[in-house]
Write a protein that binds this DNA or RNA. Structure first.
Lengths: 194, 194
DNA sequence: TACTAAAACTAATGATATTAGTTTTGTGGA
DNA sequence: TCCACAAAACTAATATCATTAGTTTTAGTA
C-alpha cells in the first residue's frame, strides 16, 4: 500500500457521478465536487487531470455501467425478447441514473483505446440481440443504428422533458420498438422474395 | 428610432449562434461573444439578461429555424413522401447548423409560453405528416413520439460521433424510417383485422 | 443646438480552473 | 519502535468567466 492512502480516483469519479445524478452534469464542477468530498479543489488534481479528464472518466464509467445493466437484462433472453429486454433496461438505466447517462454521452475520444472498446461493447450487445433477425453485412449495421437511434432519441427526449403530454412513456417506447422490429421483418421478407 | 441605435438582441443571438455553429455550444461564452462583436462583455447585458437568457433565446431561435426548414421541406409532400422529406430536412438542418441544433436542445421552459408554442409547432408538423397513417388518439401520439425519437436519436448520435463505421449514414436513416413506417402500417392492419 | 435615453464603457466582486510550491501524514522498512 | 518518504492535502497565486454598479459616450429627437 502506498504511503498515506486517502481518496482514490475511482472514489472521486463515483462522487462526481453522484453529484451528476443529483443535480445534473452542469452542476459538476471541481469546486462542488471538492466540497462534497470535504477537500480543497486543488487536491483533486492528485486523482484526476482536471475537469476535462474527470468528464472523460465519468463517461467511461457510465458506458461501462450501462453495459453491465444491459448485458444483465439481456442474459438468457434471445431474439425479440432480447431486444425488448434491452430497450426496457436502457430507459430504466437512464431514469435511475440520469446524470450518469448524460455523462456517458460525452463525445468518445477515438484515440482513447479503452474508451473505444467500452463503447464497442455496448454496440456489440445491440448487434448480438439483433442477430435474431438474420440480417447480414451492411443491413445488420443499418438495423443496429436504427435501434440505437430509437433508444438514445427516446431517452434523451424523455430526460430533457421533450414529451409534454402525460401519456404513458413506457407504452410509447414499446410500440416504437415493436413497429421498428415488425418493419425490419417485413422488409427482410420482401427482399428475399425479390 | 431610439437614441444611439447599436446592436440589437436579434443580432446578438445570431452572432452567438454563428459561434455555436463554428465551435460548438461549449465555446459560446459571454466573453467570446463580446469579442466577436467587438464590444466589452458587460455591454451584452444591454441586449440579453445573461448567459442563461442567451441560451434560452438561442434555443427559441433554433426551434423556429428548424420549423422553417422542416415546413419548407414538407410543403406539397404528403403521406409517406412527407415523412421522408421531413426526415431528410431534419438531418440536413443538424448537419448544416450543428451548433444551432445543439442550442435548440436546451430543455424547454414550460412556463415560457412563446417557447412552448414554438416547440409545439415543430411537433405538430410531425403530427401532420403522420396523419396519413390514419392513426387516432393515443396511437397517433405514440407514433409521433417514435418518429421524433428516431430523428433526434440519429441526429444526436451522428453529431457526437457515435457512429464509428464509415457506412453511408443517409442510407441508415432512410432504412430506419422505412422500417418504422412499414411496421406501423402492418401493426395497424393487424389491429383492424382483430 | 441641446436634451435624453440607450449603448457602451470602466471598475469591482465572486466563482471557477489550474499551476507552483509547501506541509502533513500514513505506511513500510531500518 | 522509530524514521524516511511518497502520496495526499494544503496554501498562495494567476487567469478566465459572469455579473453588478455606476460612469461616459453618442445618435436621434425635440
Amino acid at each position: 500500500m502506498s504511503p498515506r492512502m486517502g481518496l482514490d480516483m475511482q472514489g472521486v469519479v463515483e462522487a462526481a457521478v453522484e453529484l451528476a445524478d443529483e443535480k445534473g452534469m452542469a452542476e459538476v464542477t471541481l469546486a462542488s465536487l471538492a466540497k462534497k468530498l470535504g477537500i480543497r479543489t486543488p487536491s483533486l488534481y492528485n486523482h484526476v487531470g482536471g475537469l476535462e479528464d474527470l468528464r472523460k472518466r465519468m463517461a467511461f464509467y457510465g458506458v461501462n455501467e450501462l453495459y453491465a445493466s444491459l448485458s444483465e437484462a439481456v442474459r438468457g433472453n434471445s431474439g425479440e425478447e432480447g431486444v425488448k429486454a434491452l430497450a426496457a433496461a436502457y430507459v430504466q438505466f437512464a431514469r435511475e441514473r440520469p446524470g450518469l447517462y448524460q455523462a456517458a454521452q460525452h463525445a468518445p475520444d477515438r484515440q482513447d483505446d479503452e474508451m473505444v472498446k467500452a463503447y464497442e461493447r455496448v454496440v456489440n450487445l445491440v448487434v448480438t440481440v439483433m442477430n435474431h433477425y438474420g440480417l447480414e453485412g451492411d443491413a445488420k449495421i443499418h438495423a443496429v443504428r436504427g435501434i440505437r437511434s430509437i433508444l438514445h432519441g427516446f431517452t434523451s427526449l424523455e430526460l430533457t422533458g421533450g414529451f409534454g403530454i402525460p401519456l404513458d412513456l413506457d407504452v410509447s417506447l414499446r410500440l416504437a420498438i415493436d413497429a421498428y422490429l415488425a418493419g425490419i421483418s417485413v422488409m427482410k421478407d420482401l427482399a428475399i422474395k425479390e
